[in-house]
Design a protein around this nucleic acid. Structure first.
Lengths: 231, 231
DNA sequence: GTCTATAAGCAGATAGAC
DNA sequence: GTCTATCTGCTTATAGAC
């Protein structure tokens, strides 16, 4: 990976260099993420990233070949770190209303960390830099996979399971959150209102979960009739 | 606005220049939008826009002062044009399911035109270029206002009216669509799945509209109980 | 109003010293 | 592996001819 085939003089020396090399790579990955958060994709140049990372500008190209490759690697790593951070708690969620409460919490944390906004920046950049597109899609997929799992578990045994596609829903949730993070950058109050409205919408779905059997049947029946007519 | 205070020689001459000036402005506004669609915010430079518009690069600064000001003006105009295009049809919508069907249609049209993606590009750029933030927010607000009106009308007389905030919901819908357009750039199939899932979600809400009175009462009751408990 | 020419600076990327 | 120095090209923005 690092292309280190050195077997010379001292193993300790090689190891020391290797460790420093890895440290530089980490600094650059972290610097790329921070630059994306603080300055956006438009200003995420090799020089800006290197300055943020506190390393020499030429090292961007030595370690990653190009700025786009560095951004792509940073995107992957960032998504892995953020998703891993929530994974355990997400897997303990068992109901829709629980998921909604946790979603609000997760949003606040991600907003402060700025990593969802980073995905927005990269998504915007990916339209031009083809190398970024697969990396961004991969980063988003980490979130999507996690959300999808929770949705499958939470919707199971609900009338909703019959009429919703967890895979599509997970993608919609992920994309919507990215859009909301970007929107928050230009209208924080509007974004807050939007988030609250989505929570109410979620509560509506959660309410179906807790309906009494008769009403539940009625909803199921109406949905069946609707979907039979709809397509 | 164009600062033309000329009253000299020939009114026709002054008028001719004024007309040509306006034509140049229009070309630049159109060129800015097209450049944003085709190359993204990162490559939307004065030169790139001028080339797309077929005019001289210096005219960007003569007419708009800076690239950011041109982009801001283009954003406003683009949103006005696109919203005006759908306004009439949107105002004829009377039910939620009708709105959903029309939403799909509108999405296909906007995706092809690329103007929602433009809002995404500008939203991403607005994080860095403060001048873009208010313009982008204003452009988005044109969409939001239209969506909000429809939602108010469509949700009235529905049990949903009691538990949803049209203003917040409209913002959520607009932001989500921007996110979806950006997502579509890196994963078209995923975006399609997401859109279909959202449609199902909408159908669920529409189903509540068409519930029989007994079930409707049950849903309303459960929602009231939920919202009383929730906050 | 529109053009050419140009200033001043920042971009990605590389060569070569250490 | 890391550094400095540098090449090339593109950026915003302006001055001045037409």
């Amino acid at each position: 990976m690092s292309g280190n085939t050195v077997v010379g003089k001292a193993a300790a020396g090689a190891k020391g260099q290797d460790a420093r090399s890895q440290e530089t790579r980490d600094k650059l990955l972290d610097g790329a993420l921070r630059t994306l958060v603080e300055q956006g994709i438009a200003k995420a140049s090799a020089r800006a990233i290197a300055t943020t990372a506190g390393v020499n500008q030429a090292l961007v190209f030595y370690h990653f070949g190009s700025v786009d490759e560095l951004l792509a690697a940073a995107c992957r790593r960032g998504a892995e770190l953020r998703v891993a951070r929530h994974r355990e708690r997400l897997r303990s969620v068992t109901s829709l209303s629980e998921l909604l409460a946790f979603g609000r919490e997760m949003h606040a944390e991600e907003r402060d960390a700025g990593h969802v906004a980073v995905l927005g920046q990269l998504l915007a950049g990916a339209q031009t830099h083809p190398r970024l597109a697969p990396a961004t899609a991969a980063g988003l997929d980490l979130w999507i996979a996690e959300i999808e799992q929770v949705l499958v578990r939470v919707l199971a045994g609900t009338p909703l399971a019959e009429f919703t596609d967890p895979a599509g829903l997970a993608r919609a949730v992920a994309a919507s959150f990215v859009g909301l993070e970007l929107y928050e950058g230009v209208d924080p109050a509007g974004a807050e209102a939007a988030l609250t409205a989505l929570e109410q919408l979620g509560a509506l779905m959660a309410a179906v979960e807790e309906l009494n059997p008769v009403a539940r049947k009625a909803v199921t029946y109406t949905l069946r009739w609707q979907s039979g007519r709809g397509r």
